[in-house]
Design a protein around this nucleic acid. Structure first.
Lengths: 210, 210
DNA sequence: TAGATTGTTAATCGATTAACAATC
DNA sequence: TAGATTGTTAATCGATTAACAATC
């Protein structure tokens, strides 16, 4: 098992390439090139080739890449050749937004359970999933072999829920609560902080000050 | 105007530091150190000092940093010493989640207008803002001196709406639609792609393959 | 003064870009 | 063959880490 370190930036770009290739494929285009992809997603052609080179040789010199093939290769690299069982915690507006987001199911992310602490939300249906009381999280997530937990809960309870998700056996957590979570090293964690994104914008708008 | 290039990673961390300092301040702690901050947010002390050094000297050798002062300095650096007028386009679940997100208002992001193309949503009230028809976007956003536009619309119409926001004079766009937008260089653009975040997780969960 | 911690420089590490041989 | 485009190496650029003098 050679662990040649792959930049996270490369993974993010691969995800973007794959989406671009889906569009290109839908247009019926058979062959593309690093230059085409680069133009389509706003990076350099060398970057595209370098990113792909981490994982193999997917093109033909002088010709380019077969769109369908390359797309499939990238999806496999990203782990999207199989479905993933996802548990969503928090059925507020954000939770509803996430659970109805079409992009998830298209990519094989199946929300198999939804939990909330509010008795008024428990029992309601979101999509085709019934909202369960938070107390059942560990038991149900374990039963469902849930691999990914999404935290759409207030910051104050995020750590506690994260601990429960880990107890239930999830391998990865996507955290929307604006708080730094402590998780063991074997758990993959990503934070999406909506305010941070706005703050990078406001810094840049005023950045001529520096 | 010296434009010494500041890494975006530094800006993101400053935002995280400021949030951490808010918590620390609430606990009544007066003085902190790069080591404390580093531990609180999961980076190295040298990183904290280096990030701050881009903008000045905010500490006292042998002592550390005054929590309130440092917090204020960082907020000013991020452009958060003033309010920002924000226009939200798209009053779906995600739009509602964003408009009710407390973290925005706390940081001075004031949603001054909300637009949607669905006649059933137009006229409803979100928080204390009435949803307006999308046709009024350019006119109203201009009137409100809107500086930031948030796109919570389907990918298919995101570019068109972005163009209208720019016509209305916004300086920055936060895009939640999974599509690559073309905007002029003077417009600050950030993309938040929910699926990409999940895909980085699934790659990492299976990353021992490489 | 002794201990602590900053601000800053130098060293290291990592990622991107440029160039080009390989080859279709 | 001539033109195009990949895959890969080397050069460049940028960010992080380590070390330490300055100084409270």
């Amino acid at each position: 098992m050679k662990t040649l370190k792959i930049p996270e930036a490369t993974i993010i770009r691969l995800s973007v390439y794959s989406r671009h290739l889906t569009d290109v494929d839908r247009k019926g285009i058979i062959t593309t090139s690093s230059g085409d992809i680069a133009e389509g997603v706003g990076v350099s052609p060398a970057q595209v080739r370098k990113d792909l080179a981490y994982f193999g040789e997917f093109g033909t010199r002088g010709v380019g890449y077969n769109v369908k093939d390359l797309r499939q290769h990238i999806l496999r690299i990203l782990g999207l050749s199989v479905d993933w069982s996802v548990s969503l915690v928090g059925a507020g507006h954000l939770g509803l937004a996430l659970s109805t987001y079409k992009g998830f199911r298209e990519r094989g992310f199946i929300i198999t359970s939804i939990f909330d602490s509010d008795p008024k939300k428990v029992g309601t249906t979101v999509g085709d999933v019934v909202v369960l009381p938070i107390e059942q999280l560990v038991e149900v997530a374990k039963q469902n072999r849930t691999q990914i937990g999404i935290l759409a809960v207030p910051a104050a309870v995020a750590q506690e829920i994260a601990d429960q998700l880990i107890k239930a056996g999830v391998q990865a957590i996507l955290n929307f609560a604006p708080v730094v979570l402590n998780v063991p090293p074997e758990i993959e964690l990503r934070n999406v902080d909506l305010a941070v994104n706005l703050e990078v914008l406001t810094f840049n708008v005023g950045a001529q000050r520096f």
